[in-house]
Simulated assay, not measured.
Amino acid sequence: MIQLKSPAQIAKMRAAGLVVAEALKACREAVAPGVTTADIDRVAAEVIAAHGAKSNFKGYMGYPATVCASVNDVVVHGIPGPLTLKDGDVISIDCGAVVDGWHGDSAITVGVGTVSAEVAELSRVTEESMWRGIAAARIGGRLTDISAAIEGYIRSQPCPTGEWGITEDYGGHGIGTAMHMEPHLLNYGRPGKGPKLKRGICLAIEPMVTLGTSKSTVDEDEWTVRTTDGSLAAHWEHSIALTESGVLVLTAFDGGRAKLTELGVPVAEDPLG
């Protein structure tokens, strides 16, 4: 069953989304050579606590940290620890928060120090594909319209290593009173399929792209997801709400206004101003 939210409930999710945005902003600023992934985790935890919110990652199915810190060939779910970032690395930071029982979830990819042109392009294409997916989310459309828009953009861009890998086993999801809810959202596929998109549906849209394979494997810790060929990966994510007046990007400071206006998409009024 897909949970539909009222305007008041979307406002609460917006509050949670802004906490996540603040946490990820602080994490981005903390990324530098010599910093450990545990340091990044502490930064996020401090921001979330300072806003009176709670982490929705820590303790989720036994997960031990506030963020997922996925470095280089780790696609998602990297557990923060003593790993020290070095110049040229790429790190994806996934973070969530709960406010009054409502969830926010977002992810960014950050280059460490000076990164290669390949890494920069990997992150750019992944982020832009996320926005193209968000722009395809419309009341009356179908779920896989988003999937097709994400894949279509990725495939349209030249890959410096030959062909982009779109991770097969992981994707976006519904979000609301739980972090992961129906429906599951693939990052590839044909448009016009799946559930009809309705007012009040909230989704976490999160492409995961690699410079190689679409295949992944899970480490013995049962969390860390790596590319099977060691290729580098990027992960970008925003949570959105569909309203009568347009799309609201719950985890973007501006509600998505700048980027969606650029893409010609109506932007919902921000319930928190």
Rank of each mutant, 00 (worst) to 15 (best):
E128Q: 14
R155V: 01
G133Y: 00
R138H: 14
R132L: 05
G113C: 04
P160N: 06
I175S: 02
G111A: 13
G189N: 07
L85H: 12
G62D: 03
M61A: 12
D105W: 07
E128L: 12
L85N: 11
G176P: 09
D169Y: 14
S123W: 04
R124D: 04
I91N: 04
T114R: 15
G140F: 04
Y60R: 05
T126S: 09
V67K: 02
A148N: 06
A148M: 07
S116W: 11
D145R: 02
I154V: 14
I150F: 00
V115M: 02
V75D: 00
I139V: 15
P160D: 06
V125P: 07
G174H: 03
T144A: 07
P80T: 06
S129F: 05
I91W: 02
S123D: 15
E128H: 14
V112R: 00
R155W: 06
M181S: 12
I166C: 05
G111M: 06
I166S: 04
W102C: 09
A107D: 00
E163W: 13
I175R: 04
P64A: 10
D87Q: 15
A137S: 12
E118T: 13
W131C: 04
Y188P: 03
L186D: 04
A69I: 07
D94L: 13
P82N: 05
G101F: 12
T109E: 01
